[in-house]
């Protein structure tokens, strides 16, 4: 077998083969002594390894079930988000021009994340066919009846989805530790979700202050009304979220909620203890930089949430149709 010939043949079918290999340039780093050790005997295995990595096809066969489950949860959350933004953009005229532009950018990001996750999962993606918007109930069983007629309610739900997404990806990260490529991808999606969350929070703050557009970012948050005037980061439990008590779980503790420093556990967003110490009272902080208040101490860290609690929250947004057509969401 001639390796170059194989690539050339594949190129006829898939013109993007070089790009695929190139964007995964690190693939070659894992093949030590590529030039030196290449032998006819080694070639079939080598080719298989290269293309598994380039196409992410290892998701089809060799990915542990635990990783598949965690990626499928992420995929389903991305669908939930994607259709939410797509629906407001394509079926309503709720948003002003500036907000619509931001929501379009966010919608497109979620679409990109769906592609990435489907690529990684291959034939093990659940659901195999993309669901439709009707699989979701964005009123959450009537809790948000005006979700597509009131910008305030729309962004309330948007903030919930984005903050939940950040916590879900963060909770997933340790479970991906055995696959560095997927870990890196998931964490870098997580980073984009955090930008979305920050942006929506900024918009909401502006909305509450009656300021839209350019001045929204300068609208001041209120620590006594965090539900309507949130900071761009999560402060304490954000007064149990933008629509308490329903949204409390999004900012609350997961399971297990407590543990020792060497374990994984999922405290509420108001947590101020990291690496086993209360970060407010670290003796290492120079005294002239104190005090570190509880709000800052909690804001400085976004807490992870375990997949079980993430699913419980997300299930509130699965429609009866979604359930009746056997959509295997969040299972």
């Amino acid at each position: 077998m001639d390796f170059i010939k194989i690539i050339t043949e594949i190129e006829k079918i898939d013109p993007e083969i070089y790009e695929r290999l190139d964007t995964r340039r690190r693939v070659f780093q894992h093949v030590s002594g590529l030039g030196k050790k290449l032998s006819a005997a080694a070639l079939p295995g080598l080719v298989s390894m290269l293309f598994n990595k380039a196409y992410g096809q290892s998701g089809n066969t060799s990915l542990p079930q635990g990783i598949v489950d965690i990626l499928n949860l992420a995929l389903q959350l991305e669908y939930l988000e994607y259709y939410f933004y797509d629906k407001v953009l394509t079926t309503t005229s709720l948003l002003n021009t500036a907000d619509a532009a931001a929501v379009t950018a966010i919608r497109n990001d979620e679409s990109g994340h769906i592609k990435v996750l489907r690529e990684a999962l291959g034939t093990r993606a659940k659901p195999q066919s993309a669901p439709t918007a009707d699989a979701f109930d964005y009123t959450a069983g009537g809790r948000f009846p005006n979700v597509f007629t009131s910008a305030a309610v729309f962004f309330t739900v948007a903030q919930c989805f984005e903050d939940l997404g950040v916590r879900a990806y963060k909770g997933a990260a340790p479970k991906l530790l055995s696959n560095k490529t997927l870990l890196e991808t998931a964490l870098n999606i997580h980073s984009v979700e955090a930008r979305h969350a920050s942006h929506i929070r900024t918009l909401r703050r502006g909305l509450s202050a009656g300021v839209s557009g350019p001045d929204a970012a300068q609208a001041l948050p209120s620590l006594t009304s965090l539900a309507t005037k949130p900071k761009s980061w999560i402060s304490g439990t954000d007064a149990d979220g933008p629509s308490a008590p329903f949204t409390a779980a999004i900012y609350g503790a997961g399971s297990p909620a407590v543990g020792v420093a060497a374990q994984l556990f999922y405290p509420a967003e108001s947590n101020v203890t990291q690496v086993g110490i209360n970060v407010q009272t670290t003796p290492m902080a120079p005294t002239n930089e104190l005090p570190l208040n509880a709000a800052s101490a909690s804001e400085a860290f976004d807490e992870a949430l375990n997949d079980g609690v993430v699913k419980d929250i997300a299930l509130n947004f699965r429609s009866a149709l979604g359930a009746s057509i056997g959509l295997e969401l969040f299972q």
Partner: peptide
């Protein structure tokens, strides 16, 4: 694992900062 979790807790806050500063500097350019 726990170091990874700790650093990820910080990473998303930095991303929140970045978007916020971007919005202060050049509004409506998500």
């Amino acid at each position: 694992t726990t170091t990874l979790q700790l650093l990820a807790k910080i990473a998303s806050v930095e991303a929140r900062h970045a978007d916020f500063i971007n919005e202060l500097l050049t509004p409506n350019t998500f």
